[in-house]
């Protein structure tokens, strides 16, 4: 089933330069989609359009069969959660527990049920020990985990990660990436991740490539990421596995193309075994 459907979307901040040009896309329920593109390609704008933080000049957005308009915006926001880039600017509460509670309060969850929900989701993101901690005492990765708990606690059907790891140190990045993968495995959620991390793209179900506000490539990662020349033209990274496979070809070793490191190691081993 189609969970998200955008049709002929146009958006610009001022009249002159359009940020999103005629974008149509559909995202299936329960899939993990990554959106890539260089800075300024319109990735984050699409996320903001989907949750109605920005309003498109023309075109339509349908989420869970509901059109995104004045009448349905609150309903739609109940179904979509988003985790933003800057860990500091989305920590609203004075403590971890307060921050997870913020969305619940807005959705008018009865006070006596909150403690239970807060504890459940704090545990899910391994932040149980920090319920009473203030944001200044937490690392960037921990703050992002709290943001994820806050979003999950509202039981969304769709969750968007808008460059959620780009301001974190490598440890924070690894933590959050592992958490994203875990959520993908365990929860039946439609997930969209806006990212620069080509290795993350390789592990997703579907990838959308944006350039200057338009979709230029779309499909399964193993198909899209093969077009390395095109990716370089769009000033994007190519997967390390593919870089290595190209080098092997130059040496006369005909390895079939692959986009993840695990796969490369496996293939090389098989090749050695065969010979």
């Amino acid at each position: 089933m189609e969970k998200i459907k955008l049709e002929n979307l146009h958006f610009s901040y001022n009249q002159e330069t359009p940020v999103i040009k005629n974008v149509s896309l559909s995202i299936e329920e329960g899939t993990y989609t990554t959106i890539i593109g260089h800075n300024g390609s319109g990735k984050s704008t699409i996320a903001k359009l989907m949750i109605g933080l920005l309003e498109a000049q023309s075109g339509s957005i349908i989420i869970d069969r509901l059109p995104l308009d004045e009448a349905h915006i609150h309903d739609i926001r109940n179904r979509i959660g988003i985790v933003f880039q800057n860990p500091d600017n989305q920590f609203i509460g004075a403590t971890v527990a307060d921050d997870i509670a913020f969305g619940l309060e807005n959705h008018q969850v009865p006070s006596e049920q909150m403690q239970n929900i807060i504890e459940t989701y704090a545990k899910k993101v391994s932040m149980s020990k920090f319920l009473n901690s203030e944001p200044t005492k937490l690392s960037g990765g921990q703050k992002q985990r709290v943001a994820i708990a806050g979003v999950l606690a509202m039981k969304p059907q769709i969750i968007i990660f808008d460059e959620a790891t780009s301001m974190l140190d490598p440890q924070g990045k690894a933590e959050i990436n592992a958490l994203i993968q875990e959520i993908h495995r365990e929860e039946n959620l439609t997930m969209i991740s806006i990212t620069h991390d080509i290795e993350e793209v390789a592990h997703s179900d579907h990838v959308i490539v944006l350039d200057q506000g338009q979709i230029v490539m779309e499909g399964k990662p193993e198909d899209v990421l093969m077009h390395d020349q095109k990716l370089i033209e769009l000033s994007l990274d190519i997967p390390n596995a593919l870089k290595f496979q190209k080098e092997l070809w130059k040496q006369g070793v005909k390895l079939s193309p692959c986009i993840t490191m695990e796969k490369v190691v496996e293939e090389v081993c098989q090749l050695r075994f065969k010979n």
Partner: peptide
């Protein structure tokens, strides 16, 4: 794989792997 620990580029790494895979041909 018997690959030298001083290898630091994809190119060198591919050469080393090619050599080893080729050995058995």
């Amino acid at each position: 794989f018997e690959i030298d620990a001083s290898i630091l580029t994809m190119e060198q790494l591919a050469q080393a792997v090619a050599k080893e895979v080729g050995h058995h041909e």
